[in-house]
């Protein structure tokens, strides 16, 4: 009963706000209506929540450890979307992409206040040219610097490497008498579709075949990619301090050095 009345009021208020905005009414009126709307929406939420139990059991592992686990499996700097997908397919699946947005900054803060206090940090991948943080990628501080460098060919080689690692992990799981989840097969199949010869038609990808196909293409790029990455890694080791080596150089510090 109460919910119905509140819903009617909410709809009415939204209509009034639209009318007021379209009619060019003064801001004060729009603000007043908005405040009223917020009150009504809160009342609606409260009415709904009454009696319903919160369902948020704490995750088994802290977020950073779950991300570490996923990155270790992938073996290359990865975007949060991929980390979430791997976590869903192989682990607890309690990481949401929104939780990763501030992770790198938090890790950097922690490192700056007491360097190397933790066994590892979730840090940045570095662009080969300017050694600045590569957008949207997460890496692990204990990896060799060259692995964390992103040259022109690296997005492709890292993608192929990750596909191989995912496939190998599935082979390990099935070899140990376990089985990979259907989510894992979906993830692998999705990756395999974009690798020539890795999967046929609309069927499910076969891990061994994915490894073969990805390796075949990887060979083509590997040498050039390795050269780019090592050259940049050398520069990073000699020119960057310990913070920027992990979290990347801004444009000023890179050009000043």
């Amino acid at each position: 009963m109460e919910l119905d009345a509140l819903e009617a009021r909410i709809t009415e208020l939204r209509g009034e706000i639209r009318l007021a905005k379209a009619g060019g009414d003064d801001d004060a009126k729009v603000r007043r209506l908005r405040a009223e709307l917020r009150t009504a929406e809160r009342a609606w939420d409260d009415a709904l929540d009454r009696g319903s139990e919160p369902d948020d059991a704490p995750p088994l592992l802290p977020i950073r450890e779950q991300v570490h686990q996923a990155l270790t499996l992938l073996g290359a700097p990865s975007a949060s979307r991929v980390i979430v997908a791997v976590n869903d397919a192989f682990f607890a699946g309690r990481v949401a992409a929104t939780q990763l947005t501030s992770l790198r900054r938090d890790e950097e803060r922690s490192f700056r206040s007491s360097p190397y206090a933790r066994p590892y940090y979730l840090c940045a991948a570095l662009t080969a040219e300017l050694l600045s943080p590569a957008r949207g990628l997460l890496a692990i501080s204990t990896w060799p610097v060259a692995v964390r460098i992103i040259g022109p060919l690296s997005p492709r080689t890292d993608f192929l490497t990750s596909a191989i690692r995912v496939a190998e992990h599935m082979t390990r799981l099935t070899g140990a008498g376990g089985s990979a989840s259907s989510g894992a097969y979906r993830l692998l199949t999705r990756m395999a579709r974009n690798i020539p010869g890795a999967v046929e038609g609309f069927g499910r990808a076969d891990p061994a075949r994915v490894v073969g196909a990805a390796n075949a293409e990887l060979v083509v790029h590997q040498e050039n990619d390795r050269r780019d990455r090592h050259a940049a890694a050398e520069r990073a080791t000699t020119r960057l301090d310990e913070v920027t080596r992990l979290f990347g150089a801004g444009l000023r510090s890179a050009s000043a050095s």
Partner: peptide, 29 residues
Amino acid sequence: GFDAQVLQPAIRAYDASGSPALVRQALRT
């Protein structure tokens, strides 16, 4: 304008509560 100011909040309310009432009301208008 309807999508942004009415429908989107109504769909979010459904995601949060499981009650389609607001979406129904919105589409009825």
